[in-house]
Amino acid sequence: MGAVDMDICARVKEDRPLLSVQGVKKLYGNRIGCTDVTFDLFPGEVLGIVGESGSGKSTLLGCLAGHLKPDAGRILYDGRDMGALGEPERRRLSRTEWAFVHQNARDGLRMGVSAGGNVGERLMAVGARNYGTIRDTAADWLGRVEIAADRIDDRPSAFSGGMQQRLQIARNLVTGPRLVFMDEPTGGLDVSVQARLLDLLRGLVRDLGLSVVIVTHDLAVVRLLADRLMVMKSGRVVEQGLTDQVLDDPQHGYTQLLVSSVLQV
């Protein structure tokens, strides 16, 4: 191993997390949504969050994405404290540097606007004005998510569930975000469509160097997509680590139960 490799190792230690989450807590009345959540997400990393329904994973995602206000703790994005950030700046970030892919594509799309319009709208929100450029970029992105060019003027309501989900991804990624939040992006899709979406997401993450926080209950999805995994139960993180290590050598009783409960095909 040469000096080059050593340099790389040194660099890994130096660079700064894109997202730093420190002791985040969210209460619903006196019921715990999530508590004591601490982790760092570095550029180009995919973090999976798994846990059963009600484990707090969506609450946590909501806090991270700024949809919910945490009751305690700090969230630093690129070194800036999100709690201290004004609403206009937070909104600007969520249009430009962040993206949020909803489980239900209808929550992330405008159903009455054409496919091209859905993608173009997000570009216009960041200041693009030239119609030709916007349409070309939209067409390019529809191609990347494998939606045929002749569907650009159709409304998403005429699309299948898998196509809607891919359109939502195009709409979210067109502005070149750095951080993408995904809430069960493959939930409710049939398995062949899921595989295609996973392949697409992996390619995009690699080519664009995206940092991703993906919430799911599907262990197969995180195994293929996530570098690191966090397991939540009753609002707390019970275990985190390298994805394959957590799945193949789970340390916490709950994770062991989760992993051993998956049905083999």
Partner: peptide, 24 residues
């Protein structure tokens, strides 16, 4: 974890007995 990810990418290869890939 991320140091291990880096190590696996650049330094340490592994040929397991099973192929695990994204279908398609």
């Amino acid at each position: 974890p991320r140091e291990i990810i880096r190590l696996r990418r650049e330094v340490l290869g592994y040929v397991s007995q099973f192929l695990r890939v994204v279908p398609r």
